[in-house]
Computed example of a mutant assay.
Amino acid sequence: MIGENIQRLRKSKGLTLSDCAERANISKSYLSNIERNLNQNPSIQIIEKLAVVLDVDLRTLLGTAESVKEQVPESEWLEFVNELKKSGVEKEQLQEFRAVIEFIRWQKGKCGGSDK
């Protein structure tokens, strides 16, 4: 169950297995084993790292499928992604958009604004 939750959240955030593992500072094969439920009992430290990378709380990773579904982007986000595809944005270019979004988050945090 934990592995399925992690995989679902990772994909909903647009992260590859490699990206997620690198950001959590764990090996790609270890993350793959967790997602495929070959390792069904990862340490709490690993779960905490993944929660930070996936921007969710621990309960979401450890919880039921319903709590994970709540974290999946709403239809507006899916429409936005479809619009990006239609406008010719390639998957490889998404990293550039992430950099812009991270800058905006940083700027809002620096100015005391909310990032929601």
Rank of each mutant, 00 (worst) to 15 (best):
M1A: 13
G3F: 06
N5P: 05
R8M: 10
R8P: 01
L9W: 05
R10C: 10
R10E: 11
K11S: 09
K11M: 11
L15W: 07
L15C: 08
T16L: 13
T16G: 14
L17A: 08
L17D: 10
A21W: 11
E22F: 10
E22W: 07
R23L: 13
R23K: 14
R23F: 14
R23G: 08
A24K: 09
A24V: 06
N25Q: 13
N25A: 12
N25Y: 08
I26F: 08
S27R: 10
S29P: 08
S29E: 13
S29I: 13
S32I: 09
N33D: 15
I34P: 14
E35I: 11
E35A: 13
E35M: 14
N37D: 15
L38W: 11
N39P: 12
N39H: 14
Q40M: 15
S43G: 15
S43R: 14
I44F: 14
Q45W: 09
I46Y: 05
I46Q: 06
I46R: 04
E48Q: 15
A51C: 13
A51N: 12
V52N: 12
D55W: 05
D55Q: 14
T64N: 09
E66I: 03
S67V: 02
S67D: 06
V68R: 12
K69M: 11
E70T: 03
E70Q: 08
Q71G: 05
Q71D: 05
V72K: 00
V72D: 03
P73N: 00
E74S: 02
L78Q: 14
L78V: 07
L78G: 07
F80E: 03
F80P: 01
V81Y: 01
L84T: 01
L84C: 05
L84Q: 04
K85T: 03
K86C: 04
G88L: 06
E90T: 01
E90K: 00
E90F: 00
K91W: 03
E92C: 05
Q93C: 02
Q93R: 03
L94E: 00
Q95H: 04
Q95A: 07
Q95R: 02
R98H: 01
R98A: 02
V100S: 06
I101A: 13
I101M: 11
F103K: 02
C111Y: 01
G112E: 08
G113L: 08
G113V: 02
K116V: 02
